[in-house]
Amino acid sequence: MAAVTHAGTAGERNLLPAIPAGLRAAAPVAVLLVLGFLAPLLTVAAYAFATPKSFEVFRSFTLANFSAVFDPSNTVWMSFAWSLAYASATVALLAVIAYPIAYGLNRMFGKWSGLVGVLFVFPLFVSENVRLYGWVLFFIKNGVLDGGLKWLGFSGGPEVLYTPGAILFGMLYVYLPFMLFPMSLGIAMIPKDLVDAARDLGASRLMIWREIELPLAMPGILVGMLLTFVLGAGAIAESKILGGQSVITIAQDIEVAFTYAQNWPLGSALALLLVAIVSGLALYVLSKLDLDRILGKR
């Protein structure tokens, strides 16, 4: 009897050290992530397979929501196409716009450029909707632009509000900091010696950029592109506020399914598809982004 008790306590004593200290320390964050991140995602995934227009989550399983989405008569694919097209255009244009800014910041402020880049994040302290309505006031008929030009004697401003172009403008405006910040960090990672060495070995300005600066800044550039793309694919406020619903994005379709239509299973199916598309693209890019090679670990 005594021997059994003894073995029992020894077993208990061994149980606690069996869990590594790192895992035990990570437990609070792990619990938070499971409850706050994984559980909602799983609920959405479960809803996607529930009976359409019901709340029978976990009690029914059907692929009806997906067959509705893929039904040839359903035009929801256009929303996917618009969202992905806008996200791609935003990424491409922001890469071209942000690179010179990031480069200039780096040349001007050196290692402090990251800090100066944070200043570009300040507009995020104001609600996105408020900022977008500000642009509505700027572009609207008799607004700041149109009214100002009329006051100066011109015939008035261009009618850009509520057009697809205005949506793109809004997205470029909103997502600039998300591209700029990682990009300037990426550019700051280029050692100055390498640029000097390349020039010393006879390389021209263009050659240095193509062979040295661009590849070394690539991790930052790709992170910026990825961030912007993920955010852009889920954009909704720009099309609603600046686009005047001239274009319906997928995020708006999802919102409608969850609110007016009260069809949570359909909304969940759309959301799940969006997650699948965006994360598929993100994983593809991340697999190309070989940080180890760049940092010389491999």
Binding site: D193, L194, D196, A197, L201, G202, E211, L216, I294
Partner: peptide, 17 residues
């Protein structure tokens, strides 16, 4: 880049990528 001279840097400045 226009001089026929070359510097070996203290950091060596090898291209890590």
């Amino acid at each position: 880049n226009k001089r026929p001279t070359c510097l070996v840097f203290q950091s060596l400045a090898l291209f890590p990528h």
